[in-house]
Design a protein around this nucleic acid. Structure first.
Length: 380
DNA sequence: GAGATTTGACCGGC
DNA sequence: GCCGGTCAAATCTC
C-alpha cells in the first residue's frame, strides 16, 4: 500500500530514483555529445549515434515513469518563491471553517495536462490570470502560487499555471502551464488565428513539427545538421508521439566552431526566441541548432543555458508578434498545415536576424524571424 | 461596490 | 499520514 510508489519499476528502485538516475545518465551523454559537436576528432559519428540512442532510451524510461504522475513530477526541484504581491489580505482573523462552511464536494479534480514549463523574469505573459492559492510545498523555502485563467468563470477556460521563483536565479520565475486556453480573450488571439487557419487538415500530431534549419538560415548541409536530423529521427523511432511532445530540441547541443560559422550573424550570437506555453521564450543559448520538437522546458537540456521569458509587464506581448500568423506565416510556407492541435502553439522557433528593430525583446535587440519552414521541416 | 488577493481548511492521491 | 492542489471566506485595492 504505502510502498507502492515505485517498487515495480527497475528492480525495486523508487520512481524518483529511477528518473533521477536516468536523467543523470542522459546529462552525461549530452556532455559527451557537446564535446563531439565541438569538433573532437577522436569521436566518430557512430559514437555519437550510440550516445543518442542511449539517451533516448533513458529519457523514454524516465518519461514513462513520469507519465504516471502526469505533470507534477516534471517540476520536482523548483526553486524558491517570491513573497506575495501588493495588495490583498493582511491578516487572517481566527476564523476556522467549521460546521456549515465545511465543503463536501470533491476539491481535487483531475489535473489539466501539462503543457509547458518556462523560466520568466516577470509573471506577465500576456494572459490574464487569477490567483487562487499559494502554498509552501515540501522542501521549498518559498511558496508556490497557483493561478487559473481569469476567464474560467465566464468561459470555462481550464488553463492554469503554477509559479515559483527560480532556485538558481531568484529574479526569475519558473512557470508551469497546465491546460490549454480555450477562452476568447484578446490575449489569446493567436489561438484563434491558428484555429482559423486550420482549414487544411493538419497532420495527426502537429506538435511534432521539426526544423533542421541552421540558426543563420544557411543550408543545413553540415554534418552537424545531419547529426541533428539523426537525433530527431532517433527520438521519433523510439518515442513516436510523447517524446517529441515533451522535449524541446531548440536547446539541443550548441553547435559551435564545428559548423559553418562564417555566416553566423554577429547579432545572432546565441539568443533566439521560442514560443512556449503561450509565452515568448528567450532561449539563451549559444550557436544553438534551432531544432525544435514540441515544447519542453529548456532546463531539461543542461548543455544550454536556461530559457527565460521577458514580457515585461505585458509590453512584450503587445509589441511582439505573438503568433505565427502575426509573423505572416499563415499564408506563407506554413500554409494551412499549422493545425489546430492544442500543442501547436509551442511549435515555432524564433531566431534573431541581423536586423535591429525597436522591438521589445529582453536582451535581444535583434529582429525575430521564423525558420523557413520548408523542405527542411518534417512533420512526424 | 467590484474585482483581486490572501490564507487556512479541505480533500484526494500516493 | 503526508503532501500538494483547490476552495472560499475574509480582506484589500481601486
Amino acid at each position: 500500500m504505502a510502498s507502492c510508489g515505485g517498487a515495480g519499476h527497475d528492480g525495486g528502485r523508487s520512481r524518483p530514483t529511477v528518473v533521477y538516475d536516468d536523467l543523470v545518465e542522459v546529462r552525461e551523454h549530452a556532455a559527451t555529445l557537446q564535446t563531439i559537436l565541438q569538433g573532437s576528432p577522436s569521436v566518430s559519428a557512430v559514437d555519437a549515434r550510440e550516445l543518442v540512442k542511449g539517451m533516448m532510451a533513458k529519457l523514454s524510461s524516465a518519461m514513462s515513469v513520469l507519465g504516471a504522475t502526469s505533470g507534477s513530477g516534471v517540476e520536482s526541484s523548483l526553486g524558491t518563491g517570491r513573497g506575495p504581491g501588493p495588495g490583498g489580505r493582511r491578516k487572517k482573523p481566527g476564523t476556522a471553517l467549521s460546521g456549515p462552511h465545511r465543503r463536501s464536494s470533491s476539491r481535487r479534480r483531475s489535473k489539466s495536462p501539462f503543457i509547458n514549463m518556462v523560466t520568466a523574469r516577470t509573471l506577465n505573459d500576456g494572459k490574464t490570470w487569477r490567483k487562487y492559492g499559494q502554498k509552501y510545498i515540501h522542501a521549498s523555502t518559498s511558496p508556490r502560487s497557483y493561478y487559473r485563467c481569469s476567464h474560467k468563470p465566464d468561459q470555462g477556460c481550464q488553463a492554469t499555471r503554477q509559479v515559483q521563483e527560480s532556485d538558481s536565479n531568484p529574479s526569475e520565475y519558473i512557470i508551469s502551464y497546465y491546460g490549454q486556453h480555450t477562452c476568447k480573450d484578446p490575449s489569446t488571439f493567436r489561438s484563434l488565428l491558428i484555429q482559423g487557419a486550420a482549414d487544411a487538415a493538419p497532420p495527426a500530431d502537429c506538435s511534432n513539427l521539426i526544423s533542421f534549419q541552421s540558426i543563420n538560415g544557411a543550408a543545413a548541409s553540415t554534418s552537424t545538421s545531419a547529426f541533428a536530423h539523426h537525433v530527431v529521427k532517433e527520438a521519433v523511432d523510439l518515442h513516436p508521439v510523447p517524446y517529441s511532445r515533451f522535449f524541446n530540441y531548440s536547446s539541443w547541443p550548441p553547435v559551435q566552431e564545428g559548423m559553418s560559422s562564417g555566416s553566423l550573424s554577429p547579432a545572432g550570437h546565441g539568443k533566439f526566441m521560442q514560443y512556449a506555453g503561450g509565452q515568448l521564450v528567450n532561449v539563451i543559448g549559444r550557436r544553438t541548432l534551432p531544432l525544435t520538437v514540441g515544447s519542453a522546458p529548456a532546463e531539461y537540456w543542461p548543455v544550454v543555458g536556461a530559457a527565460s521569458v521577458d514580457t515585461d509587464a505585458g509590453a512584450g506581448m503587445d509589441s511582439f508578434p505573438s503568433s505565427p500568423s502575426s509573423l505572416g506565416l499563415m499564408s506563407g510556407s506554413l500554409g494551412g498545415s499549422f493545425g489546430n492541435n492544442i500543442y501547436d502553439d509551442d511549435l515555432f522557433d524564433l531566431i534573431p536576424d541581423q536586423g535591429r528593430v525597436p522591438m521589445h525583446m529582453h536582451a535581444c535587440n535583434t529582429r525575430p524571424t521564423l525558420h523557413a519552414w520548408g523542405s527542411s521541416n518534417i512533420f512526424l
